[in-house]
Design a protein around this nucleic acid. Structure first.
Lengths: 229, 229
DNA sequence: TAGATTGTTAATCGATTAACAATC
DNA sequence: TAGATTGTTAATCGATTAACAATC
């Protein structure tokens, strides 16, 4: 740990320099996976790990790991490797874990309920603060400690509570209108499960489209191809 | 339609030739998206579309579309473009839609229920035929027209019913054991929602790992970066 | 110091785009 | 035939891997 502290000063400088250039989408996509593996290692009590060891674990090249991490700064030490706790912390920081983003789930159907029930959000420092629906039979109830409000209140609620993320689990017909409301209320990130592709409604709004069906199709393709070959 | 028929014979030959060489993972990943867009066009009654028009719709280059489709054969016609219905059918075929794969959902928790409730499977020609759990309070009930059996019966059931796909929505502690059972029973595809990475337990078993948390993290990263920049 | 392992540059590989001849 | 648009080759671009000097 002492060695890590010693170089801290130079780290910070290098990080700042590296972040000036934008990081490729391929690297960003891999960051959450690093974060997961490092979290596991941390829980197992591993103190340090080399790019070679991590590469074996994750089934990627050591070169790629070093290259990826160096987009953001020098997080390791020659002759030593990476301090797991430190690296995990740095990647957490990069990914915005514990930025304190607040999320609402719009759509209290099966998927909305399933997402409300997971620990996915809190584990990543994202706070779910409410659910919304139009169905009068669920409005007013509580689902997994979350109050369910009517969509009519969505705009005001988001504005008042500084919501940054809207999780969309509504039917696709309702999606466009809900998004417009969210954006009006200043929500900057849309996590879209509505089974249709949402174009970013404004350049400063981030949309992440989820298409589970695409993944099922890929599985079918590979099943079919594997059976043929 | 007549023009399409005329060239059918040559199509088939070209397809066979093209499929000999393996298609890159990048292309495969894009196929389901083409399938979605073409399905939409078909429902709207569009008869033909050029790579240029489709590229505008999908926000990719026309070159990429032509290049991608030609991995599998010449599906279009010079001077005409692509017949939507024909191309949709071809991509459906490629992806294994209506191969009649049978699936079971293991884990009747919130996510299992949510997946059982969607039309995702039937829309892609995959038949859900049962659910499994260990919780005695759900075993014996029916969820969305699916019987819920005890996991003890999983092996026999899959063997008897020729199940190809196992959808894993169990806690990660239970995942390894369930996978072993599925593989024993001849299941060849695992759609894994168990929040841990599953290595293919045997070379002829296909695993598709879903990590919704990674997607949420990417959204957070982009939110954070967009706010900074 | 000697050994280990990073950070980083250079080489390779693959994927995307551009261009155009073939052809409907 | 003339116009349109594919299929396909060649050029470009970017991402991955290899290699090694820097350094802990």
């Amino acid at each position: 740990m002492e060695r890590i502290d010693k170089v801290h000063g130079t780290f910070e400088k290098r990080i700042t320099d590296a972040q000036k250039t934008t990081v490729s989408a391929a690297v960003i996509r891999r960051l959450p996976r690093y974060h997961r593996y490092l979290g596991d290692l941390l829980r197992e009590g591993t103190l340090r790990i080399s790019s070679a060891a991590l590469s074996k674990l994750m089934n990627v090249t050591a070169s790629q790991i070093r290259q990826d991490l160096n987009c953001f700064g020098g997080f390791g030490q020659q002759g030593y490797g990476y301090n797991v706790k430190y690296l995990y912390g740095k990647i957490s920081e990069l990914l915005g874990v514990n930025e304190g983003f607040r999320a609402v789930i719009v759509g209290a159907g099966n998927l909305g309920k399933a997402l409300a029930a997971t620990h996915m959000f809190e584990r990543r420092g994202v706070e779910r603060i409410a659910m919304f629906d139009v169905d009068e039979s669920v409005v007013g109830t509580r689902i997994c400690d979350l109050d369910v409000y009517h969509v009519d209140e969505l705009r005001d609620f988001c504005q008042k509570n500084g919501v940054s993320i809207g999780v969309l689990t509504v039917p696709k017909e309702a999606a466009e209108e809900v998004v417009a409301t969210l954006v009006e209320a200043g929500v900057k990130g849309i996590w879209n499960f509505a089974n249709m592709e949402l174009k970013p409604p404004s350049p400063d709004v981030i949309v992440e489209n989820i298409h589970l069906g695409d993944s099922l199709m890929k599985l079918c393709y590979e099943l079919k191809t594997s059976a043929e070959g």
